[in-house]
Amino acid sequence: MSAIQQQKRRLFFALWPGAAERAALAAWQPPLRELCGGRIMRPDTLHLTLVFLGEVAEHRLQAACLAAQEADFRRFDLQLATAHYWGHNHIVYATPAAVPAALAALAGGLEHGLRRHGFHFEQRPYKPHVTLLRNAKRSDADLPPMPAVRWPVHDFVLVQSLSGAQGAHYEVLARFGRRSTGE
């Protein structure tokens, strides 16, 4: 194998919030941290994962992009209305009260296309969420109601996860679903 084929990138597909949605989600973090402790996720890292691929050989990027282009993407609104705590991984996250059909279809279709293109990844029931806090410890108090965040979803992205001194940071490699006419 050549050196290019041996290089790998840690990749995932995600919904990437705009500035308004990112600010609204970040506003949830301080009151939730008051109850649960933990580490607030940096606003620039907030996202909703569609499919986590993990380590992917550099030469497979084009196949991943092709699978994304083949996915049946339709614009939709995502309403994030509640915060929950996951004890097994100690996170607090935002989630929709109901999963929009277009989101479930996108995640399922993307998984199917990626498998057709020879990608292997962990398969588990899809639970859309945006991680807000890590290393949280649940208090006895219920998590407070949060102001709903309306997120108009116009596209989805392929993201590379990079590690640095400040922790993980993400680089958007490609966008899919938005029409080139400016829609």
Results as ranks from 00 to 15, higher is better:
M1G: 15
M1R: 10
A3C: 01
Q5M: 13
Q6S: 09
Q7V: 12
F12C: 00
F12V: 03
L15K: 02
L15Q: 03
L15G: 03
W16S: 05
P17Q: 06
P17E: 05
P17H: 01
A19W: 12
A26M: 12
W28R: 02
Q29K: 09
P30W: 08
L32V: 02
L32T: 02
L32Q: 04
E34R: 15
C36T: 07
G38R: 04
R39V: 12
M41V: 14
M41F: 04
D44M: 11
T49W: 07
L53M: 06
G54A: 09
E58C: 15
E58Q: 14
R60G: 08
R60C: 08
R60P: 06
L61D: 06
Q62A: 15
A64L: 02
C65T: 11
C65E: 08
Q69K: 12
D72A: 15
D72P: 14
L80F: 06
L80E: 02
A83K: 02
A83L: 06
A83G: 12
H84P: 06
N89Q: 07
Y93D: 04
A94T: 03
A94W: 02
V99A: 07
P100W: 06
P100S: 08
P100C: 00
A102H: 04
A102P: 10
A102L: 12
H112S: 09
H112E: 13
R115V: 14
R115G: 13
R115E: 14
R116Y: 15
H117L: 15
G118M: 01
F121I: 08
R124V: 10
K127P: 03
P128W: 09
N135Q: 13
N135I: 00
N135F: 04
A136M: 04
R138N: 11
S139A: 15
D142M: 12
P147Y: 10
R150E: 14
W151L: 09
P152V: 05
V153G: 00
V153L: 01
H154R: 15
D155P: 05
F156M: 02
F156E: 03
S161Y: 03
Q166R: 13
G167K: 07
Y170C: 04
E171V: 15
E171W: 14
E183K: 05
